[in-house]
């Protein structure tokens, strides 16, 4: 059994709890508003479309939403130790992690890939092809981000901070300055997948598709495996 509906329901309600849902909605709404404004003021322009979808949607929105959904799928439960109620059950630990991952991927994709697609269509022109390319890249990135940040959630109480450091400092800042960093960037791997579809030179990755695919699979599978191991030996030190 790889999926437990009860675990999924609890996780989904935890991630989409009031405050969190508002934060998750903020960036997609912003993206779509900008897309509408751009379309009205500039008209259909592939250059601008690529800038917005690549620079804002994929580079900023997807990782941020990934951090919130990925760490939120397990971090708070471990933090306040309410996860005891999940773990004191005869449910295999990998099932719990895979279920939580599924929900985190679903939420990340819904709040990032979907708005990217919509924004792309609003921007128009050649945008529909770009929209599909970036949306697909966002969907692929959603999987890897969710798995990676979920793992961070099982390792540290400060998973959100580490997640943000990875997304903003490593990928966004160092990734734009140091070439080597780009090879180790979920964003670049996802772009490699998008590049295949986008064509026309507006979607460009610094990593070749085969390498990117392998790295995506390795990171996703490795992070998921590690998270399940962490859960198997989760300890409660008690109040003493």
């Amino acid at each position: 059994m790889l999926y437990h509906p009860t675990v999924a329901r609890l996780t989904q309600r935890a991630i989409l709890g009031r405050r969190r849902a508002l934060i998750l909605l903020l960036l997609p709404v912003l993206l779509i508003v900008i897309a509408i404004v751009v379309r009205v003021l500039v008209g259909a322009d592939d250059e601008v479309t690529a800038d917005l979808l690549g620079g804002f949607a994929l580079a900023t929105m997807v990782p941020l939403i990934g951090v919130i959904a990925g760490t939120g799928a397990i971090g708070p439960e471990i933090d306040d130790s309410s996860i005891v109620y999940l773990l004191a059950k005869p449910v295999p630990r990998p099932t719990i992690i895979l279920t939580k991952l599924t929900v985190a991927v679903g939420v990340t994709a819904a709040f990032s890939a979907l708005p990217t697609l919509v924004a792309g269509f609003i921007l128009g022109g050649n945008g529909s092809r770009l929209a599909v390319a970036y949306a697909l890249a966002a969907a692929v990135a959603s999987v890897a981000y969710a798995a990676f940040f979920l793992m961070l959630g099982t390792i540290s109480r400060h998973a959100v901070v580490f997640g943000l450091v990875y997304a903003l400092v490593w990928e966004a800042l160092l990734g734009s300055l140091v070439d080597g960093v780009k090879t180790l960037s979920i964003q670049q791997w996802a772009l490699a997948v998008g590049e295949k579809i986008g064509q026309g030179g507006h979607v460009v990755s610094d990593v070749a598709l085969p390498v990117a695919t392998v790295l995506l699979v390795v990171v996703t599978a490795g992070a998921t495996w590690f998270a399940a191991q962490r859960l198997r030996s989760l300890t409660l030190a008690g109040e003493e």
Binding site: A14, D80, S82, V84, A88, K89, P90, R93, G238
Partner: peptide
């Protein structure tokens, strides 16, 4: 060994629940 929980019920001291 998660199979033991078929036989064990636990009431933790901590307050936190869902």
């Amino acid at each position: 060994n998660e199979q033991v929980y078929k036989q064990i019920g636990l009431v933790p001291e901590r307050e936190a629940m869902y």
